[in-house]
């Protein structure tokens, strides 16, 4: 019974945040953290529920970011429309790339997605007339202002963009929750636990896997679009394999196959470098150790572990079967 209360507290805190912490820099970090939460929540669908590691989430974020940015810059599409279309463009790319890739299992799939991310990166870097190459694309507009009566809400203001991304995150969580609590979600868990068995039971596993892959990718694309219009500048660098690993880390760290875990994980990966104020190189080494240690000693992740420690009857969705992850 503690869950609704906790949810309300978190929501209230999120809404109040920009008024409590007014320093521009922290609002900036909060926006970035929420963008990464969206990516992590998406990654969780394929990784946490279906049990397939996709190392292409960073690349898909890039597809979303560039398609939304270029649609609004070059094609003159309104920004709101561009952001809404970006997840679907990303989904299409994931569908095309995922169809052959999901015919193979396990490590092969992971390697293929890694290569996919590299290809996306190579295209972003080399398709210079369209993407601007490594120098990137500048002058990406913020969403058009909304007028409510006499009140005009401009999204060039950081606080307003914060609420936009917060709303996007809430929408993402609604979608992910709906997916994992549906029949599809149960089939995905069956695939994770024993794909051969699920196949033998007459489930066309590849359809479900493809669906999970596409959902994950399109959410990453959505996050990418939000990122692009926030930063007003994008280059290929944030969409490299390193950032796909970041998303995987967020899911593992927080607790894969749980709804809240990836969010906590994503927030940690953004907050840690700021809190620790250490050179990035140490941070990445710490991330590496965190991955190894968590997989060996805490395979369920932080959130379920803390929930257990707290001794609550805080029944996370399918925490009970996490040991077979």
């Amino acid at each position: 019974m503690i869950r609704p209360v906790l949810l309300a507290v978190v929501a209230a805190a999120a809404l109040a945040f920009p008024h409590v912490v007014t320093a521009n820099y922290f609002i900036h970090l909060a926006v970035l953290a929420m963008v990464w939460m969206i990516v992590a929540a998406g990654t969780n669908v394929i990784q946490g529920y279906a049990g397939y590691v996709s190392i292409a989430q960073g690349g898909f974020m890039g597809i979303g970011a560039y398609s939304s940015a270029l649609l609004s810059l070059d094609a003159g599409v309104p920004v709101w429309l561009a952001i809404s279309v970006a997840p679907f463009i990303t989904a299409l790319a994931a569908l095309i790339a995922g169809y052959p890739s999901l015919r193979v299992r396990g490590h092969y799939f992971a390697i293929l997605t890694l290569a996919m991310n590299m290809v996306i990166y190579i295209v972003l870097v080399n398709w210079i007339p369209v993407t601007g190459g490594e120098a990137g694309t500048t002058g990406i507009p913020a969403p058009e202002p909304i007028s409510i009566g006499t009140l005009e809400i401009s999204f060039e203001r950081r606080v307003n963009y914060y609420y936009l991304v917060l709303a996007a995150l809430a929408l993402t969580m609604l979608i992910v929750t709906a997916v994992v609590r549906s029949r599809v979600g149960r089939v995905l868990e069956a695939i994770r636990q024993n794909e051969t068995f699920a196949e033998a039971a007459g489930v066309a596993c590849w359809k479900y896997k493809l669906f999970a892959f596409v959902i994950s990718a399109s959410l990453a694309g959505f996050a990418g679009a939000l990122y692009a219009h926030y930063m007003s500048f994008i280059s290929p660098a944030p969409f490299s394999v390193d950032h796909s690993l970041n998303a995987i880390l967020a899911v593992i760290l927080g607790g894969s196959g749980t709804l809240t875990g990836p969010l906590v994980g994503a927030a940690l990966t953004v907050a840690l470098p700021e809190v620790l104020r250490i050179a990035e190189i140490f941070r990445l080494i710490i991330y590496g150790f965190a991955l190894v240690v968590v997989v060996i000693f805490l395979p369920r992740g932080l959130v379920p572990w803390i929930a257990d420690l707290a001794g609550r009857d805080w029944k996370l969705p399918r925490a009970q079967s996490a040991e077979s992850r």
Binding site: L245, G288, L291, R325
Partner: peptide
């Protein structure tokens, strides 16, 4: 453990060795 675990270990090791 399931193969996904060894793969994530591999990713962690990559980060550790690469950055070391």
């Amino acid at each position: 453990a399931p193969p996904i675990n060894s793969f994530i270990i591999a990713l962690g090791l990559t980060l550790i060795i690469e950055k070391s």
